[in-house]
Write a protein that binds this DNA or RNA. Structure first.
Length: 806
RNA sequence: GCCGGUGUGGCGGAAUGGCAGACGCAUGGGACUUAAAAUCCCCCGCCUCACAAGGGCGUGCCGGUUCGAGUCCGGCCACCGGCACCA
């Protein structure tokens, strides 16, 4: 009997120390070797520590990273800290400590927790976004964006979180409330730094065709970018030189445009105010619309309100008829031109509005009943009541109308995107300072590159001021500086960058993290990029993933990186839910702490359960008993040491098929992220070994190599104790013998009319034709058929025989 | 409303158009033990049947294709995620 019990708490510490001291997982700067870059989203080092969601992503790519090393690749699997951000700052305010100190402590805590799980990260390349040597380059990229006209300052209504006291990007507002804290978001006009991500809308869309992202990620990005094709059309305003421009995706329905609607913020109102008799009424409506918070706007859907503009009419360019212009908040200033042509016959919103205010409804595409509802299902319709378009299919009509508009100079083809520019300023302390000086003479002046990094100054209070200004605004000797251009008195920008800044390029820094001449050397970037495999959460699909692709496309355009797209492959893991099937949260009291689990079952079993619990891309409830089952499995693996027969050589004949097919299955399943079935196959193999009662050294060895990416510590320990030689992490990945995947004989099912009626042993080499010729004559099959006659015979080699009988 | 995804035992789940329920969890039974824990073994979808054998039914619902459908096609339903007065 093997006397020593399995003690993960001892062997895991032991091997973690050995990995550390031997620099086992540091990426080599050997640019001749084939490389593989595995990336997980770097964590935000919160005070709460690691939760069980982090290890799901980390273990998955740790398996890939460890497998790639065994396959001979130079692997980069880095880790870092997305350490700027509000929770740390709020904690610092509350407890009167410096956020940098809080950050340092949290990082140390996170690193300890991660090391305890045995991830093969290259800790020598840690990136910390709050380190001036790092954010210096974040500022540098900002200067480049500014230099290329992609960063600009604008007075504009922004989403203002009333609790965080900070402006938010559109992407950070969810259901009208702050994504982070859930508080009400109101619109507030502020002077904000913006990034022109809209200029990259088409490139962000096109790039998706060149990369290997899972479909739902691509779909969500496309959806968010929201491209739509159509035309812009000018409507003349009666009795003036002005025209009112609209965007429409359905130029073919122009004959059905019976009125127009402009958004309450549309400049036309102000422009025409002298000839509008009911301006008071309109101003009141404008004020009403402005008061509505985003929350109210999303809640109060479908109840159409509006006011007609008296004394001003537009001319429908195809019918020549004068049509009224209305103001309504169902038309958004931020999309298209802020004005629409209303086609109530074929648009639900226009139909409701027309009904509410008694406006004419005209059918221009046949097939519906416009007295009952708008006829919107018109992709295949035929035009009616439409002059020169009558009788045409909508597709032809669209084309003909667009050409007609272009010829007459009344409009043009146009593509619109839902994507908005990115609000980039935050009125907060704990972020990268924006390296700009505002000079009354020269305007916004960038710092010189040689003056970077612009350090965050020490302040007394980290709180946003009551007027909504950054805490940096209160430090007058930091704020007041000479203008870098003219030397006159000027003031620094006091807003800081959002947390998304650092995460938009951190993966580039990993390539060469200690470089102080550039964000990374050209050679390192050329070698390591693109990231070969990036795994992360679905919640980052429209934020981080889009932003970082944008920055990378930009860096590509200015010649800093070779490839346009940063990530070759993107996968996403499913969320881990609490044991009750609900989302894990402190308030629900269903949070599982990784440290507690590791104390109980060890890191190897914990890692295994994270991968075994279910399909990797699905949300799965945690089950502590299931995790204990993984520990029991590792106990069985440990006890296999009692069964090793030192004298037996190679693979025993009755296990050769099991071992070879397991190697094949596990190898393929790891690549497809089917970790649960790979582990199930390993369990089956161990069951086979146990049932046999004795195994050869080679049989044990194959198991350890296959299991090592999932549960590395126990494999290293057994490997060493069994005297297999150099550590597992440097061993070649096991290969299978194609000729040993099936035995000489296989059991097949015998079906009569598609129903299983018996089993039969047949030679596995038997082919389809030969099987169909010979098998029906065998005794067992003849008994099943009885005196019925066989009409048809189908033999699927190695699977089944189906006889159709009458 | 639009775009994705998912529906299979008590539970998590498995199944290139080919034996539905692998693997694990839970439950029950047994062995070992003075006892317990640990470990090992067995059973474990529903119905029929005294039992066994045997048979029937079964992958959200309705239809279709096929020798054969959880898988493919058509039409629904439910749930989850994302987007949404986006013209």
């Amino acid at each position: 009997m093997y006397s020593q019990p399995y003690q993960p708490e001892i062997i895991e510490k032991k091997w973690q120390q050995i990995w550390d001291e031997s620099h086992a997982f540091e990426a080599k700067s050997d640019y001749a070797k084939p490389k593989y870059y595995c990336l997980i989203e770097f964590p935000y080092p919160s005070g709460a520590g690691l939760h069980v969601g982090h290890p799901r992503s980390n273990t998955a790519l740790d398996i890939i990273a460890r497998k790639r090393r065994m396959e001979g690749y130079n692997v980069l699997y880095p880790i870092g800290w997305d350490a700027f951000g509000l929770p740390t700052e709020n904690y610092a305010i509350q407890h009167h400590v410096h956020p940098a100190k809080v950050t340092r402590e949290n990082i140390d805590h996170f690193r300890r927790q991660l090391k305890r799980i045995g991830f093969s990260f290259d800790y020598s390349r840690e990136v910390d976004t709050t380190d001036p040597n790092c954010y210096r380059w974040t500022q540098w990229i900002f200067l480049k964006l500014f230099e290329h006209g992609l960063a600009y300052k604008a007075e504009m209504p922004i989403n203002w979180c009333t609790s965080c006291k900070v402006g938010l990007a559109n992407e950070e507002v969810v259901d009208g409330v702050c994504e982070r804290c859930g508080s009400e978001v109101v619109r507030k006009v502020k002077n904000q730094w913006m990034l022109r991500i809209t200029q990259y809308a088409q490139k962000l869309l096109d790039g998706l065709d060149t990369v290997d992202f899972i479909d739902r990620v691509k779909a969500q990005q496309r959806n968010w970018i929201g491209r739509s094709e159509g035309a812009e059309v000018d409507f003349a305003i009666e009795g003036s030189d002005t025209t009112l421009r609209v965007f429409t995706t359905r130029p073919d329905t122009l004959f059905g445009a019976t009125y127009m609607v402009i958004s309450p913020e549309h400049p036309l109102l102000h422009q025409m105010k002298d000839r509008i008799p009911n301006m008071d009424q309109l101003s009141a409506y404008q004020a009403e619309a402005a008061r509505k918070s985003d929350f109210e706007r999303t809640e109060l859907v479908h109840e159409k309100t509006g006011v007609a503009i008296d004394g001003v009419q537009a001319i429908n360019p195809v019918t020549g008829q004068a049509i009224p212009i209305w103001v309504s908040d169902y038309v958004l200033m931020s999309y298209g031109t802020g004005a629409i042509m209303a086609v109530p016959g074929h648009d639900t919103r226009d139909w409701e509005f027309a009904r509410a205010f008694n406006l004419p409804i005209v059918e221009v595409v046949a097939g519906g009943n416009i007295d009952e509802a708008a006829h919107t299902d018109i992709e295949e319709g035929i035009l009616v009541n439409s002059g020169f378009l009558n009788g045409l299919h909508v597709t032809e009509a669209k084309e003909k109308m667009t050409k007609w508009l272009e010829e007459k100079g009344l409009g043009e083809r146009k593509v619109n995107y839902k994507l908005r520019d990115w609000v980039f300023s935050r009125q907060r302390y704990w972020g990268e300072p924006i390296p700009i000086v505002h000079c009354p003479q020269c305007g916004a002046v960038p710092l010189k590159e040689s003056d970077l990094p612009l350090l965050l100054p020490e302040v007394e209070h980290y709180q946003t001021t009551e007027s909504g200004e950054s805490p940096l605004a209160a430090i007058s000797d930091w704020v007041n500086v000479p203008c870098p251009a003219c030397g006159g008195p000027a003031k620094r920008e006091t807003d800081t960058m959002p947390q998304w800044a650092g995460s938009s390029w951190y993966f580039l820094r990993y390539c060469d993290p200690h470089n102080d001449q550039a964000f990374a050397s050209q050679q390192a970037l050329d070698y390591w990029l693109p990231v070969d495999w990036y795994n992360g959460g679905m919640e980052h699909t429209t934020l981080h993933l889009l932003y970082s692709r944008f920055w990378h496309l930009f860096l590509h355009d200015i010649g800093q990186v070779k490839a346009p797209e940063p990530y070759q492959k993107r996968t996403s893991h499913g969320m881990i839910l609490g044991e009750n099937g609900e989302k894990m949260s402190k308030s629900r009291g269903n949070v599982i702490n990784p440290d507690d689990m590791i104390d109980e079952i060890g890191a190897d079993a914990f890692r295994m359960y994270e991968m075994f619990m279910g399909a990797f891309d699905q949300a799965i409830p945690w089950n502590t008993n299931g995790a204990r089952g993984c520990r029991r499995f590792l106990d069985r693996v440990w006890r296999l040491q009692d069964m090793v027969d030192d004298k037996a050589k190679g693979l025993s004949s009755d296990l050769a098929v099991n071992v070879n097919s397991t190697i094949k299955k596990v190898t393929e399943d790891y690549e497809r992220m089917k970790f649960n079935t790979a582990i199930a196959a390993l369990m089956t193999l161990v069951n086979d070994y146990t049932a046999k009662g004795s195994i050869t050294r080679d049989e044990f060895k194959a198991l350890l190599l296959l299991l090592s990416p999932v549960s590395p510590h126990i494999c290293e320990e057994i490997w060493q104790q069994q005297g297999y030689g150099d550590p597992v992490w440097g061993q070649p990945w096991p290969q299978y013998d194609e000729s040993k995947l099936v035995g000489d004989q296989v059991e097949i099912a015998v079906q009569i009319n598609g129903k299983v009626r018996g089993k039969l042993m047949v030679p596995s080499a038997l082919d389809k034709l030969e099987g169909e010729r010979t098998l029906p004559d065998s005794l067992a099959v003849r008994q099943l058929v009885g005196d019925r006659s066989v009409v048809k015979t189908i033999y699927v080699p190695g699977r089944l025989l189906n006889l159709v009988v009458k």
